[in-house]
């Protein structure tokens, strides 16, 4: 399957994401700059992590208003898979493609460590390689990953099975409501998550727990 990685000023995890996608699918992704209004014909669009626009105003707020996001919205409506990691997740909630908001970590500190994630929904295009309830390792690195949604939105997100990952075993690093680490849209083709699965895909990383996510999204068998 073909993939694309979106690039915006201030994103800095794009190279890690390109490496992960290339290693797992065997094909290098195309890169798409923020001013582009059309996205090539791909099966997966990834918005990587970083600090787009220096996190000015709110994390992801300015990136979410760039022309490329209109093109991504159109592709998402057609059913193309979209994955946002870290700042990519913040951009997806700011653009309205995903419900809720990501706020300053409850500790007020930047957290850079490893957490445990429980796969809450293994029935999505992004998590088929995992078993429901499986606990995987994943690195996190963020200052604003505190997921929030009002009571009504939260009820809908929980009720529809849109919570895909929860921080497990007391490792919630940011105060996220209900330990939410990743959510999918109602249609199931847009996933946002704060943890960085692209940084745990091979022995050199000390593990490959993140590989299943890309193997699922790219329709390749998990290695």
């Amino acid at each position: 399957m073909k993939s694309a990685v979106v690039q915006l000023p201030g994103l800095n995890r794009d190279r890690d994401m390109i490496a992960a996608l290339t290693k797992i699918s065997g094909k290098a992704p195309v890169t798409v700059w923020q001013t582009e209004t059309e996205i090539p014909d791909v099966d997966l669009i990834v918005i990587p992590g970083g600090f787009s626009y220096g996190d000015y105003l709110r994390c992801g707020a300015i990136a979410a208003r760039m022309p490329v996001m209109q093109a991504i919205k159109a592709k998402a409506e057609q059913g193309v898979r979209v994955l946002g990691v870290c700042n990519g997740f913040q951009i997806l909630v700011e653009s309205g493609l995903l419900p809720g908001a990501l706020m300053r970590n409850a500790s007020l500190k930047f957290v850079c460590r490893e957490v445990k994630l429980q796969v809450v929904n293994a029935d999505t295009a992004f998590t088929r390689a995992y078993a429901k309830g499986q606990v995987i390792r994943s690195p996190v690195a963020h200052h604003d990953g505190n997921y929030f949604a009002d009571a009504e939105t939260l009820k809908a997100v929980e009720g529809n099975g849109q919570v895909v990952f929860r921080y497990a075993e007391g490792t919630n690093p940011n105060g996220s409501i209900n330990d939410i680490a990743g959510v999918v849209n109602a249609k199931g083709n847009v996933l946002g998550m704060m943890p960085h699965p692209e940084n745990l895909i091979e022995a050199a990383h000390g593990g490959s727990d993140g590989r299943g996510l890309f193997a699922s999204a790219l329709d390749v068998i998990a290695a």
Partner: peptide, 9 residues
């Protein structure tokens, strides 16, 4: 509505 506030929060 479009930029200055995130009306979710």
């Amino acid at each position: 509505e479009k930029l200055l506030a995130n009306t979710v929060i």
